[in-house]
Design a protein around this nucleic acid. Structure first.
Lengths: 338, 338
DNA sequence: CTGAAAGCGCTTACAG
DNA sequence: CTGAAAGCGCTTACAG
């Protein structure tokens, strides 16, 4: 392995000078800089991150901490897109990302503790849903840190406009004449996204003079099965809803599956709306009307905020809310006359 | 931050002893070991990976190198599952994974070089499709390294039985009476998976006395659109195929979408088979007949092989081929009489 | 069984 | 503008 000493020798300077050139600090003569750079190139030198890190500078590495939830986690296209967004931001800065999952058994804090002690990273992006205690730990050591999701503690965070998006979805259904709208939610607890989307639903309904009806609400997971079960449950109500709002697309798709299996025509008899606009939404039959958000943009934004933090810049906004967009496709239609 | 010195002081021993206890080396008295462990616990000590790494021991970190292909990469549910599999293996060993994507512009080697020089990881898992030059680099430094996919260089690798799986898919269609079978392939070049699956198709067809017909083959990407386009292209042939084999599920699903949009009934008029068995395959309408593979298992296996390598154990097998399984669902039916 | 000392490859004041 | 030296937090022979 070629070290800084090799470069120094090759260039006929001291290692301190090599270091200075490489870190872009001033007070190096142009000629020296040139010579060093050439040596670096000639030798294909890449500094050891371990040594750099130990010596107290940057590690060029950020950690992405995600909760441990074997099923939901890695099956979630949104997470994937968010990672993609993060990657797209860090890649030109020559950063790498350390994926740190919470341990299955251990408390969520373990992931943070390991990070704090063991790995030296320049900053951390936390997937929400992990709770705030871990983040709190990071804060105390004032680690640069951004949350993808919500932060009750007021930490820098970025998330889609769940509240507004849900409102728009409900209003779309209301305009189509639907009055009984079944809601299929994500995890009942610990999910700000679910809560915010439900708040949005409630507000849109109440603005239309419709009381929020708890019996039209089911909870589950973010998975398709949860939508399937939700539809089953809601459609046995009397009278059944004329529209279903799956709080994410996978649930909406699962709901459609149940509906069609049981002879309901979508959208003629039952309209269905989703949230996310995942790839499948446009491929499904019928194609899914949904609220588009961009987890890719969330990841990107989180990363760029993190870099600002790392570089000690002031954040313009500590809470970034990315707008959503209604995408009308085939799965919604006017409510059938009753 | 608490260091090994703090622990040593707290336990009343030298840092060498603390180190010995922590690394599980012998020749420490039980009492001393106890005392050290208690101090570690009391202080919540976690060793600095940077220091450990510099001092020449394990980093407890592996790198996963993936090619840069913004669209396909992070949209691929298989990759996600593979990461999940890797994670499941490393998590109880308290390892972390460094996700290293090749740079957009730069040659693929850049990702490897950075790894080699900058980051000290104990081993590397390479997603295939990156070519072998980078892996070669790793080999030269004899870095423990496992490939998810194929290795022409004979490096340790693990992949599904693409060849056999494709054979089974084709035989399934043959048994249903199909004779003209359209093939929708992945990326034309650089994809061993595509090549192997096509070889499987060819062999199954020829065993049935049917010549491999290039005109019944389209290439594209692994995305759904590619299947959509493939179906469009293949169905304009005269006579059109009675069955389509999407070399992955997303393509198969895209093909079904095109077929239904254009009035073809699936499976009554055209049968469709996929490969992978992704989540959507069972949700789609019709549900998709497909060849099931487990990218999760691939990831797991790759990781466990890597650990064996890291621990200097002999590998029983350098090329692990995971079996696939035909899952018959609704998208295939007997060929219509002509 | 235990500890003193060198060294891993850098960065950062500090002198020059 | 340049370099000598200390120090980052560990591990690993090597003595004891």
């Amino acid at each position: 392995l070629t070290t800084i000493y090799d470069v120094a020798e090759h260039a006929g300077v001291s290692i301190a000078t090599v270091s200075k050139v490489l870190s872009g600090r001033p007070y190096v003569s142009g000629a020296t800089r040139e010579r060093v750079l050439q040596s670096v190139n000639a030798l294909g030198y890449v500094p050891s991150v371990a040594a750099q890190s130990l010596a107290g500078s940057r590690t060029n590495m950020i950690a992405v901490v995600i909760g441990y939830d074997p099923h939901d986690l890695f099956a979630d296209p949104n997470l994937m897109q968010a990672l993609h967004g993060i990657d797209s931001e860090i890649t030109d800065r020559d950063f790498a990302m350390l994926l740190s999952c919470a341990q299955p058994g251990a408390d969520h804090l373990s992931a943070f503790r390991r990070l704090l002690g063991g790995y030296r990273v320049d900053g951390v992006i936390v997937e929400s849903g992990l709770g705030d205690e871990g983040v709190h730990l990071l804060m105390q050591r004032n680690y640069p840190c951004v949350i993808m999701g919500y932060s009750p503690l007021g930490l820098p965070c970025v998330h889609p406009d769940d509240y507004g998006g849900a409102q728009v979805a409900i209003r779309h259904l209301l305009e189509l004449g639907h009055r009984r709208i079944g809601l299929i939610g994500g995890p009942p607890s610990n999910s700000y996204a679910t809560q915010e989307r439900l708040r949005g639903c409630q507000s849109a309904l109440e603005q239309a003079g419709i009381a929020f009806d708890e019996s039209l609400l089911t909870y589950g997971s973010w998975r398709a099965e949860s939508g399937y079960e939700g539809a089953k449950q809601l459609m046995t109500l009397d009278p059944p809803p004329t529209a279903l709002f799956g709080l994410n697309d996978r649930q909406a798709l699962g709901a459609i599956r149940w509906l069609r299996e049981h002879g309901y025509r979508v959208p003629e008899e039952v309209s269905v709306v989703g949230f996310d606009d995942i790839e499948s939404a446009a491929l499904w039959e019928p194609t899914l009307t949904t609220i588009r958000q961009s987890p890719f943009a969330i990841g990107q934004r989180a990363a760029s905020m993190l870099f600002a933090l790392i570089e000690d810049q002031e954040l313009e906004t500590r809470q970034v809310i990315l707008s959503t967009e209604l995408v009308v496709r085939q799965s919604t239609a006017p409510a059938a006359k009753t």
